[in-house]
Amino acid sequence: MKETIGGNLTRYRKSLHLSQEQLAEIVGITRQSINNYEKAKTLPDSKTLSALARALNITIDDLLRTESEGLPNFRFRAHASFGNNPQFAAQVLRMLETYNNLEQAVGLPSYAPESTPCHQVEGNEKRIAEIASRLRRCLGLGEAPIFNLFETVEEIGLKVLRHPFPIKDFFGLSACSAEQGAFVLVNSHNITIERQLFTLAHEIGHLICHRGEYQDTLVEEGTKEEEKAREKVANHFAGYLLLPQAEFERMYQLTTNIIRLKQHFRVSYQVILTRLAQMEVIDYAKERAKICAVYKKQHGSSLKNSMELPPAVKPEDFPENERYQQLIWQALKLGKISEMKAAELLDLTVEKLRVHRQEAEVYAIS
């Protein structure tokens, strides 16, 4: 136990670029005490352990968890800072554990999409389109546009959470294990709904095509070439999931207006341009440059890569984490979690939770 706490304390402290003196000052103890904890000479008492966790933006469980109890079979969109960001890894693990515990509490089985390995786009374009088409059939979509992909995949049991992470260029990650099923985390921090939808589709592509390459750490392994190939496959899959080819060709015959096409399919204009470029109808770079020039002339500012060409989809049409919240209420109703725990998970006070609970009972159909 001393070694576990000492190692974790050192790792989390260094990730925040805190010296032993600085951490000691925040917690209200001596630098020598911090040194003794990190060298596994002494154990902090419960009060000090709680103060250390708060100072390091983690939980007591994170300090007590061994590295072998890490993230289950994880793959994620590579980001250089993850290897030096154990707080992020700990937060993701807590999210996974909480979601899994809620599913188990209400008796729901785990779910993961069928694995179909595919490691490169070249020579596999039709195969990737068929993999996406197969998932669409599983979702009962046919060739129709997807009104809300979050809701659609949650209905078949995929665990999805949207959460604001202020991490540059991080859009999402996915996890899967035989016992816990599949999980997708989507970053919602200053990211358009269209981009969030693409991230979800992209990560589902990884879950289906690259399941065998998932690993136990958030630090990406493999060569850059291998990762680029995986990303390209996931991007192709996402495009075909969001834009079924037959329906896209039908709509493109009716209108070549980018705005109308993106509104019909509820995707970003860049997804539309990418598909047209794949069909060799346009030159992506030239078409985007033209759109950006028109946008700047109309709005007086540049259309950045992180922005969406208006009109964007309405955020109110995509409420966050509905399945997750429903599981919390179900677990509470079944007596599997306390009011205090439910309030914590829903980010409510206990008083507000009780008000919501009373309103739900009043309007419930008996």
Rank of each mutant, 00 (worst) to 15 (best):
T4W: 00
R11P: 07
R13N: 12
E21F: 02
A24N: 11
E25N: 14
I26K: 15
V27P: 07
V27F: 07
S33P: 02
N35M: 01
K39H: 15
K47L: 13
L49Y: 07
L52P: 06
R54T: 15
N57V: 07
D62N: 10
L64R: 09
S68W: 05
S68Y: 09
E69W: 02
L71N: 05
Q87T: 12
L93Q: 08
M95W: 00
L96T: 01
E103G: 03
P109V: 12
P109K: 09
P109L: 09
Y111E: 05
P113D: 03
V121F: 03
I128P: 02
R137H: 02
G140E: 09
P145C: 08
F150A: 03
F150H: 11
V153F: 06
I156S: 04
P164S: 05
P166Y: 00
K168I: 07
A178N: 09
F183R: 10
N190R: 12
N190K: 11
E194V: 04
H202F: 15
E203K: 03
E203I: 02
I204D: 08
L207E: 10
H210F: 05
R211I: 03
Y214L: 14
Y214M: 14
L218N: 05
E220H: 02
G222E: 04
R230K: 14
A234D: 13
A234N: 07
A238M: 11
A238V: 13
L243N: 01
A246M: 04
F248W: 03
R260W: 13
V267H: 12
Y269S: 15
Y269T: 14
Q270K: 14
I272H: 06
T274Q: 04
L276E: 05
M279V: 07
V281Q: 06
A285G: 06
K286P: 00
A289M: 13
G300W: 13
N305K: 01
A312P: 06
L327Y: 01
Q330H: 04
G335I: 09
E339H: 14
A343W: 08
L345Q: 01
L345V: 02
L353H: 13
E359D: 14
S366A: 11
